[in-house]
Amino acid sequence: MDTTAETSMKQKWNTQGKKKSSNKRKWLQALIFLLPSLLLLGIFFAGPIIMTFYFAFTDMSLTGASAQNIQYVGFQNFTNMFQDPSFKTSFMKTMVFLLMSAILGQQVLGFILAMLMREKNATVRRITGTAVIAGWVTPEIICAFAFVTFFSDNGTLNHLLNIFNFGPVSWLYTFPMAAVVIANIWHGTAYSMMMFQAALDGVPKEIHEAAMVDGAGRWQRLWRITIPSIKNTISTNLVVITLGTLGVFSLIYTMTGGGPANSTSTMPVFMYKQAFVNYQLGYGTAISLILLLIGITFSLLYIKFLKTDQE
């Protein structure tokens, strides 16, 4: 992260005095810049997170008697949760959804696209790029509607398969998880593609040419040169899309409502149902807390990645 620019900055600030108070003064100065962000984050982000820890231990509900007076119930929400088979299902579904749509789907497809598009005909690049980015630019809700009809019994996919004398398949019932995974890949791949494109553009050509002279094959070059030199991007991208995918709600909820039989009920969907369909806000918050903890685990992982990157 230390660019030459930063080094020169360092010198500039360092020459202004090494006293402790100067750090404080600089922080104060920085605070002016940081203030609007800190205020927003403090009220609307840190506040609710702290409240999560409180509400998760109450029986708060949206309606019914416990909407009037909220009672502290200890770990009851958590014991309920761990006894609830739907919770275990939702945890597993979340992991499957993450692995398939974010880690394998978006990341790998994005990388392949970026690789294929290198030094190709500009028109083909533009056509493919636009098509992929259309998926990203399409709002999540519309994505969901588009895919519900795409996968429906008389939908586009079955029409296509019919040409090859195949089907029809009730995709949303038979392969609901695959359906939401595909929808999410469609929506998210452009992001990974753009990240990798930028990173690949930054790999100096000379190294490649040198390797070619040495007689390294395609795959060898890919493994030994390309991938190591964009390692940063891979790890960053991996974690960013993983965390983004962890919170996906509107897409799944609109497409399948978590069904059939909980087969697409990821944790955000499960949380929503408990909190806003069954009106058990406290229980919903307890589920949120677990979701938050998973997020925290991933971000610690993330931070570790970055630390090794900086060495």
Binding site: G47, L243, M271
Partner: peptide, 22 residues
């Protein structure tokens, strides 16, 4: 910076109930 990165990673869906209460 690490704290900011940490915040980046939180799924918003998870805090909606407390946000509504807030």
């Amino acid at each position: 910076m690490l704290v900011i990165l940490f915040l980046t990673s939180l799924p918003i869906t998870a805090v909606m109930v407390p946000v509504y209460q807030l």
